[in-house]
Amino acid sequence: MNKRNLTKGLSYLILFLGALIMLIPFLWMVDTALKTAPETVQTPPTWFPKHWQFNNFVLAFKAAPFITYFINSIIVTFLTTLGQLVTTILAAFAFAKLNFFGKRPLFLICIGTMMIPGEILIIPNFVTLSHLHLINTYGALILPWLASVFSVFTLRQTFMSISDELYYAAKIDGSSDWNFLWNIMVPLSKSSIIAIVILQIIGSWNSFMWPLIVTNTDNLRTLPVGLSTFTSDAGTEFQLLMAASTIIIVPIIIVYILLQKHIIEGVSKAGLKA
């Protein structure tokens, strides 16, 4: 089967070439981050730094309050993800298993809001938060993201697939809704929940426009916003810019590599449902 081997070889060739193009920006970033300033502007560019400058990372950390940005990003990502997870689990349970007046219209309204581009919400939310005197606080960074209709919708689908018989059997055995939700529903839906959490972590960690708008001092900026302000200070110090970019990209890549099976599964599932 010579022809078959040929197509297979060609497939791999294309796929590896594509993968290389996907990787080059990352490699180039790390490569530049390890060069001296003169070497970054050398022509033709070099792929292996002559003298590895790990010091660039130290310099980048010193040049801007990246530690503060880092801590802020962690606080905001953690609280947003945790808060959203709780509101999502409770609401998804109600929509999946409980009966109440107004269930269908409420659900349809929720779904309807997913059609609206989030950019539209920015102006009124900014006005609301400034009337609450919350601009430039953690509150502004976290509160608007504590509920996600998309997550509720995704988790509701998973909860629906858990049989009603199981629910009623547990109720007859005297288990309360609350216990049933946390002891049976949640563990059974582990993979969906992990997917929701990971997508939220990625979204929160990388979020840019909103934190840019609601923060105006260094002590509250998150990494992406801090990095963008750093660019105007760093000017043409490419090795420092790339060191700073590496600092913000590496943690999420570590999370990704550790949990990639769940991420890819989660994205496929969420995509199939949408």
């Binding site: 993968a19 990787l23 990625i202 960690w205 990388n206 840019f208 992406p224 913000i248 999420i252 999370v255």
Partner: peptide, 11 residues
């Protein structure tokens, strides 16, 4: 191939 999706757009 999925790597760019998880990385910060800003960075």
């Amino acid at each position: 191939y999925f790597l760019p999706f998880v990385t910060s757009t800003v960075a």
